[in-house]
Write a protein that binds this DNA or RNA. Structure first.
Length: 443
DNA sequence: GTTGCCGGGTT
DNA sequence: AACCCGGCAAC
């Protein structure tokens, strides 16, 4: 989890830095030792740093070490690339086509801080020449991308192995320039991020890979945990099944459209573009389906309910096998084929409320309750498992009860008819014209 | 009776 | 998707 950026705060030692070599090129290495010449007995930053502190850098790939002052080092906790002049031949790293690639500097225009670099994209036969700004390149290879840059191990491939995706994308490389201008996602979209945000996302990918491998390992206490998951659902008491949509019960054409205020606005107090993402942890123990909003509580649940007290010295994080982490989008739900899509918003249904209390004690519930019964649609997407199709929380008994017809209570709001009158019918919102629920003055 | 709007049909 | 309308239910 820790990146070089973090390391600098805790301990300088081990931090990856770049430092000038004899040939005027920067080389990456790791801080091996810190020497503080002046006796500063108790410096408050715990590591006795002074302006004269010298850092012993051990360069990668060899035993060569050398001492530098902090101003000479480039890396987390030290200076950045700004103002640095790079020579031709300098090895740099940059994000190209969504993944980190190695490149060599061809030249560096110090005025505009633009560089011409020659990229050694793993997929490309021929080196590509690019213009990059200085702030777009790095001297240090990001830890994660050591793998990314590797031809044989890219995430698109790993994902392919995990799921049933077409392998074509792994073997037939799409020319890079197609991707760059395109709004389409690349094959490994969730990992396809810029440098800054990549760490966290990458961790998800790593976590997915780790979990997948764990779930198949003989050590896994229940190797079928993942497989069970899909089969468990139908009988599970509080989760599984289908979903419903936040729009009005009936008019499908309109509810998905936000032109003319969109019916979805009836139930949302936020702009439609904003989505609230909640992380939900769901117990995958057979027949359980317990859902909670925090990692610690799901682990506590699994430990207490299913696994029993932890043995002394046991730290295998066994709980992790029995829950999944999912994103819950509270707006703009994914469309489903479920017939429940046509049903009333669940916040109108008391059964639903009860179900909700049972299953969403945290987070979501508070949203519901103090949000004056705003509908939450809960398509759960397993962001890192391609083997699980999008799953939806099912609230059994809700929506289908004959006693709760799918008609919304008539709102007290003004309606186009009232406001404009019949003679100005052309001023009505389309919904009113069509005898549908008014969207202009909707609640 | 009027109004809002669901459900479903037509273009 | 846009449009239309019968019909139901809330007012």
């Amino acid at each position: 989890m820790s990146t070089g950026k973090r390391l600098a705060k805790r301990s300088i030692i081990g931090t990856r830095v770049a430092a000038l070599g004899d040939d005027g090129l920067y080389y990456s290495g790791m801080i091996q030792a810190v020497k503080t010449p002046a006796p500063f007995p108790e410096n408050n930053n715990c590591i006795n740093l002074t302006p004269n502190t010298r850092y012993t850098v051990r360069f990668d790939g060899g035993k060569l070490t050398r001492e530098y002052r902090d101003a000479e080092l480039i890396g987390p906790g030290f200076r950045g690339l700004a103002g640095v002049r790079l020579r031709a031949g300098q090895r740099v790293f940059l994000t190209y086509n969504g993944r980190e690639v190695r490149a060599d500097v061809l030249d560096h225009d110090h005025d505009s801080d633009e560089l011409r670099v020659q990229v050694h994209a793993p997929a490309a036969e021929v080196p590509i020449e690019l213009r990059k700004r200085l702030d777009e390149i790095r001297l240090l290879e990001s830890r994660k991308s050591a793998r990314l840059a590797d031809v044989d191990t890219d995430f698109a491939r790993l994902a392919d192995m995990a799921g049933d995706r077409r392998r074509a994308s792994a073997t037939i490389e799409v020319p890079a320039h197609h991707m760059q201008g395109s709004r389409k996602r690349g094959p490994s979209s969730s990992c396809d991020l810029g440098y800054g945000e990549r760490d966290d996302q990458m961790n998800e990918c790593n976590a997915a890979l780790v979990l997948m491998s764990l779930s198949c390992s003989p050590n896994s206490p229940r190797p079928s945990a993942w497989g069970d998951r899909s089969s468990v659902s139908p009988g599970a008491s509080s989760s599984s099944g289908s979903s419903w949509r936040s729009g009005t019960p009936s008019p499908p054409p309109v509810s998905s459209s936000f032109s003319d205020e969109g019916i979805a606005m009836d139930y949302e107090d936020k702009p439609p573009t904003k989505k609230r993402i909640n992380i939900v942890f769901e117990c995958t123990w057979r027949g359980c389906g317990y859902i909670t909003g925090s990692c610690s509580s799901i682990e506590a649940h699994i430990r207490q309910t299913h696994l029993g007290p932890k043995k002394e010295g046991e730290s295998d994080h066994e709980e992790e096998f029995y829950y999944t982490e999912s994103e819950v989008t509270a707006a703009a739900p994914a469309p489903t084929l479920s017939h429940r899509d046509m049903c009333r918003p669940p916040h109108e249904d008391p059964d639903y409320q009860r179900q909700l209390v049972g299953s969403y004690r945290q987070g979501l519930l508070s949203t519901m309750q103090n949000g004056s019964a705003r509908p939450i649609s809960i398509p759960i997407t397993h962001s890192w498992s391609t083997s699980h199709s999008p799953k939806h929380i099912k609230f059994t008994g809700a929506n289908s009860s004959p006693g709760s017809p799918g008609r919304r209570p008539r709102s007290d709001n003004k309606k186009c008819r009232k406001v404009y009158g019949m003679d100005q019918r052309d001023l009505w919102c389309t919904q009113c014209k069509w005898k549908k629920a008014c969207t202009r003055f909707g609640d």
